[in-house]
Write a protein that binds this DNA or RNA. Structure first.
Lengths: 146, 146
DNA sequence: ATCTATAATGAGAATCATTATCATTTACCA
DNA sequence: TGGTAAATGATAATGATTCTCATTATAGAT
């Protein structure tokens, strides 16, 4: 069984949440660690065909989300895709294709990110809103749909 | 029947799309014009209880989206909420409550928006992605869930 | 190592949002 | 006014997600 650094961190976090890091949960995390974009429960179950049933994938994702290990990303046609949380995968943003719905992760340069944070700070300063995070979504056509 | 400026624009746009601007469609648009955030089909049907059935609300939203009159916003628990398109309602961003899922519209000051656009421009310059729009999502707790 | 209480799992049923179907009604235009 | 295509309403079908419950696995106590 793989023992990446991320795995250790997940292990620790789940222990803190008082839930077990079982075989099935490890497998779901392993797939998400390798993925280069958010994945839906169905996609995960497909990847883990025969090893982890769909119902368990859903339950596992709920547990992982509750523990702050993964984060949901809501997309077209009622599909929710999950990815490793920011503190594990790093802060990033999304390029969303308006044709096919594909989501691509993107990281901003330090200076651009700082610029963006300035905007967010001012937004939460003005609104009666307790901001805990932000995400920039850039909509457009990906290279395949261009 | 109300005849706001927006209504005229919607009328014109639908005519261009070759579909009729019927009573039911007018009522859905009227509610969305008044709303201060995206609304789901169920919420719209509730607002129009007895006047427009749910199935027609869905169909109407599909037609309006196709014509570019409304825009979808995908949220938690497989819910899609719609709002008037940017060219009608003006460019804005969203405050999303991580507790209750409520979405509130927010407009940035000219200078903040300019700052944000700088970031987006640089993103699309670097990626092989044809950006057509952007949206900043600020996640946090709304005043009710604080 | 065994027992016990509790957590996790698997299979399938139930639920909720959304889409499709189809018979009926409405609106446009000759 | 009549004919034709578009729109509607009720309801069935679909697809993603959640729930249920009987079974299995696990951590900790003995």
């Amino acid at each position: 069984m793989s023992v990446s650094i991320q795995d250790r961190q997940v292990e620790e976090r789940l222990a803190k949440s008082g839930v077990r890091y079982t075989g099935g949960r490890r497998q779901v995390v392993a797939v998400l660690e390798r993925a280069d974009g958010p994945m839906s429960a169905a996609e995960l179950a497909e990847e883990l065909k025969g090893r982890v049933p769909v119902s368990s994938v859903y339950r596992t994702l709920a547990v992982l989300e509750e523990a702050g290990v993964v984060e949901p990303h809501h997309g077209a046609r009622g599909l929710t895709r999950y990815e490793m949380a920011e503190w594990l995968a790093g802060h990033h943003h999304h390029l969303v294709c308006i044709e096919c719905g594909a989501v691509e992760d993107i990281q901003l340069s330090r200076s651009l990110e700082r610029q963006l944070e300035t905007v967010v700070d001012q937004v939460s300063a003005v609104s009666s809103f307790n901001a805990v995070g932000h995400s920039l979504e850039v909509d457009g056509r990906c290279k395949r749909c261009r």
